[in-house]
């Protein structure tokens, strides 16, 4: 897949666990795991907005395009 997700790196930088992010964002751990492992086929703007807000980052810090 061309788009990869580097959520764990940002989580490590912020010292936040996936469970904590899940509680703050209101997305299940199962869904965040799907996102973290780059298995997700799509991400809602609302989810991306909530993640960026909680992690204080830009979408480009999480999502990368790989050729």
């Amino acid at each position: 897949m061309a788009i990869s997700v580097k959520l764990d790196r940002v989580l490590l930088d912020r010292g936040m666990s996936l469970t904590e992010l899940s509680e703050r964002v209101g997305v299940t751990i199962a869904n965040l795991s799907i996102l973290k492992t780059s298995k997700a086929k799509a991400i809602r703007f609302s989810t991306l907005e909530a993640i960026c807000k909680e992690l204080n980052c830009q979408p480009g810090d999480i999502l990368f395009y790989e050729d």
Binding site: V27, N31, L32, I34, L35, A40, K41, A42, I43
Partner: peptide, 8 residues
């Protein structure tokens, strides 16, 4: 359905 399930 798969796409919906894998939409976060």
């Amino acid at each position: 359905k798969e796409e919906q399930d894998l939409t976060v």
